[in-house]
Amino acid sequence: MSTISPPDFTAERFARAPEARFEPAPADGVLPEGFFSTTNLPTYVRLGGRWRMPREPRMDGALVLDAEGGLWVREGRRVRQGERVAVGQAEDGSEGIYVHASWLAGGAEGEFKFMTSEVSREKPIDYARMARLLVEERARGGYPVWVTGPALVHSRARVDMTWFIANGFVGALLAGNAVAVHDIEASIFGTTLGMSGSGEATTGGHGLHMRAINRVRAAGSIAQAVEQGLIRDGIMHACVVHRVPFVLTGSIRDDGPLPDVVTDNLAAQDAMRRHTMKATLAVMIATALHAIATGNMLPSFVTGPDGSLRELATICVDSSEFVVSKLKDRGTHQAFGVVTNAQDFLHILRLCVERELAARSSPIAASGRRG
């Protein structure tokens, strides 16, 4: 995992840089002309002769200075009339705002770029590296956010995803209505969209997902359906039993939906954002829209308790190169792509994580570390 060296603010160009300029928002949800549009990279704002980092960083936001002197990144819709918003477009510090991009591979200092992806299904997949990242995050008490699509359930990766949740590798699960519906259908009826575990359509199976939704709605919630014994295994069961928070967001095509689904898009953004703000690692599997949405909410870095920065490892998995490339093309520079199907990815990753855990707990490995 890459550590990020801080800028040298003793350099003359930083010492001579002006203070950042702020202008009041003209109305609720309206930013002043010339506002600074944030990126997901480490950003510093010169205030009172010091370079400060805003809280809750993300791309596509505004820099807001509150009445107590706190500096925040805020979505435009959340800015209120009269709040002070940073203005300027330069990212090199010449207008009091510096975007630290030189640590990126091939990055030009002070410049945030789109369309820089290099993804290919012909590249080798370093499962051992990903396994180390997951094990290290669990060891340090990190907050890995997993973003999943329904193909994960259909492809028989459900058992492996359940294992990751049960064993402490998932801090929060972000998904859509379909992931939960198909997982719950599998628990109740043993099918997903009426398809058996062997991949065959079942008689009358087309209505089973609707019957699953109806039963959960009758129970009141997913958690209550677990408590009542209606949902006995699977991804949502593991989330409830192991108290892993989940956010299910709705879409126009949803059936039902389940009672836990957030159907208001802006409320769903806020619900997801509460977890992306805490994320220390992100794993996105088989979901284009959720992956890009989450990527837009994530900073590219994690701030340690001592103020140090490190890269926020972001893994994007899809059977299509298009999805993996699209995430990077939308500004999530730190993501590394895996072009494969969900079933193979999760099963091999689980084996590698188990191997990594065994290696770390073995006497030989422990002796080697002491030496």
Rank of each mutant, 00 (worst) to 15 (best):
I4D: 03
E56R: 13
P6L: 12
F114K: 12
R84H: 07
A86F: 04
E118M: 03
R21A: 14
A180L: 13
L133E: 07
G141S: 15
G371A: 10
L71M: 00
R217A: 01
R355S: 10
M277S: 14
G70V: 03
T294Q: 06
F322D: 14
T249S: 14
G34T: 03
L312K: 14
D160V: 08
R13V: 06
S37P: 08
Y98F: 15
N167R: 15
G295I: 10
A11M: 12
F14V: 03
G199Y: 03
H206S: 10
M115G: 10
T202F: 00
A11D: 03
G197H: 01
N40D: 04
T203R: 10
V79A: 03
G197I: 00
V339G: 04
W146L: 11
M53F: 00
R310I: 11
S117W: 09
S367C: 13
T276H: 07
S198H: 05
F336E: 12
E95Y: 01
G331T: 08
D306C: 10
L248N: 07
T332R: 15
R121Q: 07
E109G: 02
G337R: 14
V339F: 10
L266M: 05
A15Y: 01
E136F: 09
A17Q: 08
G229T: 14
A17I: 05
V226F: 10
L71A: 02
E136K: 11
R50H: 04
V119Q: 13
R140Q: 14
D60H: 13
Q334W: 03
F345L: 09
F14E: 11
H333G: 00
L230T: 15
S361H: 12
R156Y: 00
T332P: 06
P57G: 04
A105C: 08
G70K: 15
P363S: 02
K113L: 13
G220F: 00
G295D: 08
G70F: 04
T192Y: 06
V181F: 05
R140E: 15
F322V: 11
G204D: 04
M1I: 13
V64E: 00
L281F: 13
A358Y: 06
I252A: 14
S221K: 08
E354F: 05
V353E: 01
D92K: 05
G171N: 14
F114T: 01
D260R: 03
M161F: 14
E185N: 00
R156D: 03
V339P: 01
M236R: 09
A268Y: 06
D344S: 15
Q89D: 13
I222F: 05
E95W: 05
L357G: 07
G250A: 04
V179P: 06
E75Q: 09
L230G: 09
G194T: 07
I213T: 01
G199W: 04
G190C: 01
A178Q: 10
E91M: 11
S367F: 12
N177A: 08
G96A: 08
A286C: 14
Q89T: 11
A108D: 13
E111W: 06
V159G: 08
R13W: 02
L346Q: 06
V244M: 07
G197P: 07
V262F: 00
L65Y: 06
G168P: 10
L193H: 12
P305Y: 01
M210T: 03
R21P: 03
